[in-house]
Design a protein around this nucleic acid. Structure first.
Lengths: 343, 343
DNA sequence: AACAATAATACAAACGTTTGTATTATTTTT
DNA sequence: AAAAATAATACAAACGTTTGTATTATTGTT
């Protein structure tokens, strides 16, 4: 004891069997160029000696790591975790692993992380750019250098060489708000997220156009764009919003599950009955909405599937010939409205 | 266009400057062996040519990847994500990245993932073994091969060479139950998790001994060990439990946040008032308990810190001399009871 | 100006694989 | 039994770094 064993390598097996390294390598690959009986000897010896291939050496030699880099804005958002699960599942089934990083909602960290990915650890990248990403030059650069990239969630259309996986946020919101309208609601509040994010812009557009389409007036007072990046502050922001209202809404369309839950919590706190006095719809549908009392009606977003699709697109890119320009693919997934007790 | 650019490497810089690769390498390292003026030339040229070091080649040469493998039983458990956040933060500050995998609560996948880690991609491993892990030979093997390992959460004391990061589950539970008792409750239900997990065993022990210590009878009927591995089934399991009770509990000690929330939801559904008729305590304290109405009193577990500590222990191991046997360290973190509306 | 001391750089092996080409061994053909 | 065809294996370069040692260039000393 006391000494870490030196790893056994191809050379060790080769020496023990008195054959060349190349033959050992090919034998383990079940390459037909090596005789069946030799192959068996090699396999047996490899097992006896506890051989474990060195992935790093393989990667250097092959130029592939079989690792997908995943960059999300934050960990504590079930949506992103669910997307990661989807990526992970698809990737694993196709012999890829995933390396997850968080940009912590910061452009600076996003760039840093991408640079670390660029150092060759990763064959391709799936990311949701942060809202701070105004300039997408770093992404275009990376793509020009030949790095396959897939964007999801907060996509940036200016990024030309990357595939996109999205949902139709505007349509989904339109339908959700229309649903509220058809239930007879006329003073519908909007709780959005960071304005700079395309998803939230689109959800706002959907809200606006649903109102317009049904000739319902839009009250600016009933619109909140949450700016908090942290769970603890969102809470307060929403409470203050509802406390400060002069118009009393009869429904709320919230742009995330969490906003939906916080809204319900706030409404209950100020003594409103849900759904009798105020109806609430959330967006995302990742579990907690089902636990709350009352349960939360949601726009159900196929998060897991988004991850799978993103991985699928990326792996497809990875298998494309290197000397043909990639043709951008955009996948738009369907949402549906899941009605529960809050409406 | 149409061709991915070949990456520029040290050799390219060397050729352009008419110097040797070794000098370029040392220059970029700011090694004093190279003349200041040369260093500057190299840096400039590296920048001009867009040099990006090849991490894989570095790793092969150095024998270190600066990647920590993290293996958790499931992604959709905020506790594990929070631990990962902690690991990530500490690791990143110490120039390590993390590679997260999920064993999906299966011994088979756990082994598979560990093998993939063993292939040299990872300098060390942090893991929470699944409840299915009866035999820890695979862990001991890995440790004997020299792989640094830190266990957290569902630790296995039989694993001798690995550090542990844990909380005092028994004590935390004892205190939580005692808290309920001191509030005058006498029929306290217990909602536990998978019996095979040490954490749940210990929480159960704490429950038992708190009752015993205060001479409160233990009703087997009031004890549930949830076996569901999936969110959707936990729900039903708990509902059925409460529906089937003959004794009506005046308090519930739930072994996770989620069980606590599901308990509250169920109690509200069957018309109980919380906390007036039934008090509820959860375990973990990772957010959702604060949103629910009423908010959930919890044993607060320092999940993020557990991750940080685990990373700290692992990185310490990684820096230990290779020819000295590692001395097992166990870190026990403190919990505290956070009182909210449910008690 | 010759020599030593030191600074700066170059050379080459190593990390553990893969893979194209060369070589040797075996089988087939005549 | 020799030549040709093919099967099996060995050799060596490559992947992009790092690093110990050898070499060359520069400076200082007398």
């Amino acid at each position: 004891m006391g000494f870490k064993k030196r790893r056994v390598k191809l050379e060790d097996i080769a020496r023990r069997l008195n054959i060349s390294i190349a033959t050992v390598s090919r034998a383990l690959d079940e390459n037909p160029r090596v005789k069946k009986s030799t192959q068996e000897k090699v396999f047996k010896m490899a097992k006896v000696m506890g051989y474990m291939p060195n992935q790093i050496a393989k990667s250097l030699s092959s130029g592939k790591t079989n690792i997908i880099g995943v960059l999300i804005p934050r960990y504590d958002e079930p949506f992103f975790i669910e997307v990661c699960r989807g990526i992970d599942q698809y990737a694993r089934n196709h012999n890829y692993k995933i390396l997850i990083s968080s940009s912590r909602n910061s452009y600076k960290f996003e760039k840093e992380n991408l640079i670390s990915f660029e150092k060759g650890l990763v064959d391709g990248i799936i990311l949701s750019p942060t809202h701070e990403t105004e300039n997408v030059a770093h992404l275009n650069d990376l793509i020009n250098k030949g790095m396959p990239i897939v964007l999801f969630d907060n996509i940036r259309e200016e990024v030309s060489g990357a595939d996109h996986v999205i949902i139709n946020d505007e349509k989904a919101s339109f339908e959700a708000v229309e649903f509220l309208i058809k239930k007879g609601n006329k003073k519908i509040a909007f709780i959005g997220g960071i304005k700079q994010k395309k998803v939230f812009q689109d959800r706002y557009k959907g809200y606006i156009s649903a109102l317009a389409h049904h000739n319902i007036p839009l009250y600016d007072e009933l619109v909140l764009h949450c700016n908090s990046l942290d769970r603890e502050f969102e809470d307060k922001e929403i409470l203050n919003f509802f406390r400060g209202l002069n118009i009393s809404p009869d429904a709320v369309f919230a742009c995330t599950d969490n906003y939906g839950l916080l809204t319900m919590k706030t409404l209950l706190k100020i003594g409103k009955k849900i759904p009798d006095e105020v109806a609430v719809i959330g967006f995302g549908d990742l579990g907690p909405g089902e636990i709350f009392v009352p349960t939360l009606t949601c726009v159900s977003q196929p998060s897991f599937e988004m991850g799978q699709k993103a991985a699928e697109l990326l792996i497809k890119q990875l298998n494309e010939s290197e000397d043909i320009d990639h043709i951008k693919t955009i996948i738009k997934l369907e949402t549906k409205l899941t009605e529960r007790e809050s409406t």
